[in-house]
Nucleic acid binder design. Structure first.
Lengths: 337, 337
DNA sequence: AGTTAGCACTCTTCCGCCTAGAGTGCTAAT
DNA sequence: ATTAGCACTCTAGGCGGAAGAGTGCTAACT
């Protein structure tokens, strides 16, 4: 890939193919400003194909970019199209209109991304790298049923029902809450039970449940992914072989799989673009994933990204993901910073 | 629809068409135990078509049931296929293995239904008809940031961040929580602020937020619908006109629309079956919905159901929905009863 | 040497045509 | 009332040919 003209041609092919979805022929390219004839373009295209940047669906069709072609486009040729200032303000505005609540932000971010890019968006809840207890509450519901509410450091609230073996009075309940709060607040799950402390059986039960919830919390790297925009995959994806689409939807729908998908994509730092066959999962070979982390590095964060067909508007999608990750980071900073 | 033989024929047609997905011809039916010739069957089918129970895709194809045909089948002909005892026990077992938490149950119910029936399942969170405050907590996060945690009667926990105008000390925070708890516990959102009470500006703010959250809570009839099994709609639905499928997925994906869908379906009491064109939404005309309420009537409850193609295994789906609604009711009863 | 016009060639897509097969509706016989 | 027989209808699928798009090659041009 020496000549500058080849690069211009590749760029035109990507842009054209992404917007039209039809293999691009030499004629189309020649009529795009570079002042050469179709024949010249054909020679160049032949070499680009030799080098693996283009492929031909069949002898007498135009060319389409290969994965390698897209990669070069993304890394070297693409002119990023930032969301307009108006759009940016609009987005920020939407975030300030919604409840001040991480889950709402996550949902909103997924909805906005999905709508902006007409593709599937994935956003996980922000999650602290290690959870610490901020407060513990016990609320009596029935004689033998108590609600345990844990408030964790980063404004996260978890709750669970506890079934008791024998009744516990209101007084015992609040004294237990007081004692345990005094002992445990600020600790990570590994820190309790504090060995020096005598625990009643009930306190024991509460401690166990608390530790369990917090440990479960810490085990998952990404939490509660919001997936929005599955509808787009249907209208947009040309490889309508409904079997494949169904596989992809199944992959995205099951949270467990999103949790598997993210780590293998989010390896390095910064924004990652995984194109077509670069995906480790077979079913994703006709998709690209753009994803990045947001939040405060090492402290609290999540993942945000989109999944779309390989034929994707990278020049708009990459800045959009990037922008929304910044917005999310700012919000997280405001609250947890 | 007088003769018993016509009913047997209709029943065979529905069973056959549902399982094979191909229009059913007179030959197939004649070879199904009723000792008559194809010609006789044809005569009967002709009349069934006259009466609107069957339709013909074209002159020389077999018959398929019309919406009216399905309706008669569901109401009069169908032999309900209960989930086997083993299956029932397995399902109950799964519910007891999961955290004691309404959201987990809802999610699990949707997953089970979706898997049992290979179709889309919708389950809403159980929701009390009127929310009452059980406890209110204030947790300081930063100097100007407080987390308000509301615990409502039915073991429901809501939380929201409050941004303060000026700092509030820990002492003020806990005294505020104490005062407001004393005044508001057990009340419905309409009950406060209690007029006889002097409120500090901060208490005012907390009161407002509390009332707002609870009112928002009460406005929605169905809460947080879990939708599972969208993947099935793709593989299963024959009307693969991807435009239509995309519309349906969009309808189901957006929570707001599920919220619109349920009320118009769940009109009467008990389990509802809405077949094909009986659906009010145009896009749903090739789908059937089976849905029912669960919970404690008048107190706390939600909706549970499935959406599938009109060509659905009603004989299995109806008992399955029914069974899972009972399981959910039992769980709700255990906790809130 | 790089570029280009010209042209034959290839391959897909679309259309119409045809046939095989399925299933019907009618008629006449039982 | 039922049924065998049969002509009829309609679809799905295969085949062939024409149109169109785009290539690759060659020979001429700058």
């Amino acid at each position: 890939m020496v000549s500058e003209r080849k690069e211009r041609i590749l760029r035109i092919i990507v842009d054209e193919y992404v917007s039209k979805g039809v293999p691009v022929g030499s004629g189309t390219i020649a009529g795009r400003g570079l002042g050469v004839s179709p024949a010249t373009v054909r020679n160049e295209m032949y070499e680009l194909e030799e080098q693996g940047y283009l492929t031909q669906p069949h002898t007498s069709a135009g060319r389409i970019p290969s994965d390698k072609g897209y990669r070069h486009y993304v890394q070297a040729l693409m002119a990023a199209v930032q969301p307009s200032a108006v759009e940016q303000r609009l987005i920020c505005h939407q975030f300030h209109q919604v409840e001040r609540e991480a889950e709402e932000w996550t949902r909103l971010a997924a909805a906005i991304l999905s709508r902006m890019l007409n593709s599937v968006a994935i956003v996980t809840l922000p999650k602290p790298s290690e959870s610490r207890l901020q407060r513990l509450e016990l609320v009596s519901l029935q004689e033998l049923l108590v609600l345990l509410v844990l408030i964790l450091r980063e404004a996260k609230v978890k709750h669970q029902l506890l079934a008791l073996d024998e009744a516990v009075s209101e007084d015992e309940l609040s004294s237990c809450a007081r004692r345990l709060n005094a002992a445990y607040v600020g600790l990570m799950p590994s820190g309790f039970p504090v060995s020096s402390m005598e625990l009643t059986p009930f306190e024991e039960q509460v401690t166990k449940a608390t530790a369990q919830i917090m440990q479960a919390e810490d085990q998952e790297e990404y939490e509660e992914p919001q997936v929005d925009g599955l509808r787009h995959i249907l209208s947009q994806l040309e490889f309508a072989s409904s079997k494949k689409v169904a596989d992809i939807v199944a992959l995205l729908e099951q949270r467990s799989l999103v949790k598997m998908l993210l780590p293998q994509v989010l390896t390095g730092e910064g924004l990652q673009v995984v194109i077509g066959g670069e995906n480790r999962y077979e079913v994703m070979h006709e998709c690209s994933v753009i994803v990045t982390r947001y939040g405060i590095p090492g402290e609290v964060g999540g993942a945000i990204g989109v999944v779309g067909p390989t034929r994707m508007q990278y020049d708009r999608a990459i800045p959009a993901v990037s922008f929304l990750s910044e917005v999310m980071s700012d919000l997280v900073n405001e609250v947890y910073g």
